[in-house]
Design a binder for these strands. Structure first.
Lengths: 188, 188, 188, 188
DNA sequence: TATGAATGAGACTTCATTCAT
DNA sequence: CATGAATGAAGTCTCATTCAT
């Protein structure tokens, strides 16, 4: 039943947009009554938070799933794989991606998204430190630059559908990152 | 009078956020009545569109103003200057930037934003063609990558205020772009 | 229009009781729409407060009106007149009296009532001091006893309609007060 | 189980007030489910009625208990005792007293209260007849005046806590009643 | 043209009550 | 008997929009 409501809320969000994400409409879509919603969620925002948190978790899982068996690749392959996995993950549900990144007027509802971004950033930062053997002074900054730019590019590509194929994009983003990290990467 | 309403709307948006952007409040801030609003704007969204369009135009103007007298610099200086100008422009009114990129539930209202992005992208594309003397085959793609990533990074830096100084950020973004364009840029 | 809503609210309160005093019903009774109510009253409680304040003011006015030309009577006549005036005043609108004293679950809404009671108590206290030439030590206590008992008796008589005529009641209450004040009252 | 629910209802009434006296909350406080409530009570009002009836019965019992062994006192002592007992009884649970006399929007629920008042009134009436050896013509009226005024004064004193000590109040109320009954009372 | 009172649909939420288990 | 999830009517309040003045 919780699942029914989450699915219904997701449906409404995808089909009608955040502006029409009303408790009545969600209840109708779930085939229940508006009151039932409040048996499982504190209020409307609570449901929304759950839906979005779940969305980001799923996206993260999809990325991880795409990467699971490729961790031993060369740095170049690895970057390429991560970028590809990111695009694949965000492509899965672009309607909800749109809602999640553009149509939610309250960013406090996006805490899980923020947390994920930070976690990824830490991973990248750690990786850079290993790779570059340099002091961590600006590894963190570079990690931020990489994570934010990759996410932004992936999101915009999925949502705006510019005339760029995925293969082409993967090439470019890979180049962007690798050239940024620079000559420091040992040649594979 | 149109100006009064636009300014009032902007004030409300900055001060109270999109959630409290109501016609009554705008009219009050403008010192007029809600009815008058409908003599100059089709509806509430129309006013919002005008405000946001104006915001993006101003941002574009600010970028251009910062660059007007530096077009003859070396490519490296030029990239640096553009990045710096972009950050300065977006910093001007981060409240409204927040509303414009995060708090508006309907992206169709952002057509001017899209148009601006495309115009800049075309400029960059042209520039890349000149610089690289290469076929335009993927200059357009590269321009898209550069424009989208720069905008995304600048926006997030202004809105999230990560622990990165402007100087540091300018360095990193400049490096990101220059290394992306690659060895093709003649050394300054 | 404010008046229309106050009257409508009063009607609903008298006809349907506090339990059915809903904004929708008041609007309907006023021949307006629910939204209009909020142009003149902060919320439902605000309207209720205005109605009750007005009720108590009217009751006070009726008491005063009944007394205006009889201030020169003997103490005995005066007590009799006050008691009679009180009964007459509360009889005017027993439906609303019922709501005002029994059916309002929030006593904070009754601030005007409390204020009136205190004002009357002060008057009585002053009067007792004049009459008894005694120290004010317990004139205040006695005033409280008199005011509270008279109000309580008058209210219950109006609301419960026991088998007691008004004349009889006036006699008894007059006796109650006079004997309480005691032999100290100079015989008229 | 009935007792569990009555006690829970009472707790809710005292702790949260009538405004929060919901079946869900009562059930929770009783450690049962809302459905069970309807196995023992027709509806919410029915439970409320039972609680209030019980409250008034207890209050009456407390008054009687305070008086049980003092029936042979002088009339003066007796009045004093009754008044004192009444105050003590109502003081026991002023939270519930508040709910019972001020916060319940439907007086029909107070039938037991009315019945108690009538019973006491009859006792007083009988007593007055014995004492005054007068015709019963207005003994009943006088009993009404005495009972209603005493109850009203006691309730207001408990709920409003005016700056009057219990001793002082007992003195005054005793004086009020005795002087009302008048010279007819044989001196003690 | 400007006004601003009036509108009324619709939002979120509560809660007494029911009924299948 | 007991449960407690489900119900859904109804409540309060907001606000974009209209229209008579």
């Amino acid at each position: 039943m919780v699942r029914r409501m989450i699915d219904a809320g997701r449906l409404v969000l995808e089909r009608d947009g955040y502006a029409n994400f009303s408790t009545n409409r969600v209840a109708e879509a779930a085939g229940t009554s508006p009151g039932s919603l409040y048996q499982y969620f504190r209020d409307k925002d609570d449901l929304l938070t759950v839906i979005l948190d779940q969305y980001w978790d799923e996206a993260a899982q999809r990325v991880e799933a795409s990467l699971a068996d490729r961790l031993s690749d060369s740095p170049d392959q690895m970057v390429r794989n991560v970028v590809n996995a990111l695009l694949l993950a965000l492509e899965q549900d672009s309607q909800l991606l749109h809602v999640a990144v553009e149509a939610i007027p309250q960013q406090r509802l996006q805490s899980r998204h923020q947390a994920l971004r930070r976690r990824v950033q830490d991973l990248v930062s750690t990786y850079l430190n290993l790779l570059l053997r340099s002091s961590g002074r600006n590894a963190s900054t570079r990690a931020w630059v990489i994570v934010v730019s990759m996410e932004g590019l992936a999101v915009r590509w999925v949502l705006d559908r510019p005339d760029i194929s995925r293969e082409e994009l993967v090439e470019e983003l890979t180049a962007l990152v690798e050239n940024y990290i620079g000559a420091l990467i040992p040649e594979a």
